[in-house]
Design a protein around this nucleic acid. Structure first.
Lengths: 223, 223
DNA sequence: TCGGTCCCTGAACGCATGTCCAGACATTAG
DNA sequence: CTAATGTCTGGACATGCGTTCAGGGACCGA
């Protein structure tokens, strides 16, 4: 085995870098397609025409491969969302941008979201801990969001009478449930995104600014 | 094997009825404790001091055992929630009672909810279908709730400018996420229940009746 | 006592998995 | 040419799983 650590070290050759990326992509696609439980190394390799032994050559083990896949997805998600959120002035618009950009990323990369949902659900160790998140674990997202909500509250941009932690859990739940409905033909992620943004806008926007016509608030921006 | 069908037939002896109930309970507790993936028949049997062979004697297979566990949990949940919902007059109070009674059941039976969440997440077949729900599958809950919301809208008890299906998904998501936080010491299910009920009350209550003081709406009833 | 039914164990089986390894092949350096 | 290195395969191996089965007690009626 070449790279035994979790932190991606310098890749020696051009071939290795390409293979590693190819294998990570195959892992994501396979997990999204057949689920975590059935995404064996043999099946992942089969997708790109290599043996499972080769995966062991490029990665220390299955765990490192999964960690790389998670890292890849989270990096791309952050790169997509952060500029869209920071483009908003401080206030309720940032929460709307958070929800809309997260769901927009899901719409553009459904296999990423299906894969990471699978990994999150099936990657529990015996004591209930997550195995595949090091620095950026997904439950941390709730705390991050709760902190942001709390700051916006403190600055008077959101109403004060809700618990930021509770609200953050509910918002993340409304977002994280989406992968389960991506294959449902009755489910329209565009409508869902704008309406969910409207629900939490109503629940968090200070009352003095909530006098806009209701349809304006609930329909949201067309993105 | 004695009972090969899914519909529970008459149990022949007192011993068998007792054993079956004991095994179902052990399955629920084991799944809640170590997760679905690690809840093998051997481990389930170990909890009550029997061999895994005996499970195969009382149940047609692992699938039937899991189905019995799901059925048991859903029956108890419905028995808990339905009278509490029907006690409310038609209107926004019913939605509040739905949310509060569902979360109340979770509070009283955390292992039930952990177990059913595990089964729901890990009991997917190759083509993405659920394996363990026959008549009452859990995704049907979203449709049930959407139908109820739609009826309440039609009768003028809820505002018209939200999509019932979208709202139902968000409400179920906010409820179904709770098992993941039951072990978190920062998580207070009482506060969560009343605030979530308030969020969706705000989002669905017709505007002419939403002029109550905000704290009255958000704090909800103390149950 | 004898036979039958119920309850239960322990082992064997087939299957799928992740890891590990001996070796093949190609390319490059000396 | 020879040696070394990077890349890759195919198979062996141990593990854990659900299922199945032969058999052994316990109990009970005849």
């Amino acid at each position: 085995m070449r790279s035994g650590t979790d932190t991606p070290q310098l890749e020696r050759t051009f071939t290795e870098a390409g293979r590693r990326a190819q294998i990570v992509q195959a892992a994501i696609d396979t997990i999204a397609e057949v689920g975590f439980a059935r995404a064996s190394l043999a099946r992942i390799g089969e997708r790109i025409g290599i043996s499972k032994g080769l995966i062991g050559y490029h990665f220390a083990g299955k765990d490192e491969l999964i960690r790389q896949a998670v890292s890849e997805i989270l990096e791309q998600g952050k790169a997509y969302m952060i500029p869209r959120i920071l483009a908003e002035p401080p206030g309720p618009g940032m929460l709307r941008a958070y929800i809309q950009s997260n769901l927009g990323f899901m719409r553009e990369h459904p296999s990423y979201m299906l894969a990471i949902a699978e990994i999150k659900r099936n990657g529990l160790t015996a004591d209930g801990r997550q195995r595949f998140y090091g620095v950026a674990d997904m439950d941390g997202f709730v705390r991050e969001l709760a902190g942001s909500l709390s700051s916006l509250q403190a600055d008077g941009h959101l109403r004060m009478d809700f618990d930021p932690y509770v609200m953050a859990i509910a918002i993340r739940a409304a977002i994280d449930v989406v992968p389960r409905h991506l294959l449902d033909p009755d489910f329209d992620i565009e409508i869902y995104a704008s309406q969910i943004a409207g629900v939490f806008d109503l629940a968090t926007r200070p009352e003095e600014t909530s006098r806009e016509p209701a349809d304006r608030v609930l329909e949201g921006t067309a993105s």
